[in-house]
């Protein structure tokens, strides 16, 4: 059983790596670098304070 799980594990790992690389490529080509790297430390606090329910 463990041999089968290990073999399936290789296939699943390869598939997940390909999915992550594909999604990474798609994300990087869809959004600008400024948007993707726009996160700033501490800014969440400011956004939360402005939030209205």
């Amino acid at each position: 059983m463990w041999i089968m799980i290990a073999n399936i594990g290789w296939i699943v790992s390869a598939a997940l790596i390909l999915w992550m690389l594909y999604d990474w490529f798609r994300t990087d080509t869809t959004y600008s670098e400024e948007t993707l790297t726009s996160s700033r430390e501490g800014e969440i606090e400011a956004v939360q304070e402005q939030h209205r329910v």
Binding site: E34, T35, S38, S39, R40, E43, I44, V47
Partner: peptide, 9 residues
């Protein structure tokens, strides 16, 4: 203006 993307709280 660039839309901000941040980690999700």
């Amino acid at each position: 203006p660039v839309q901000k993307v941040s980690l999700l709280r």
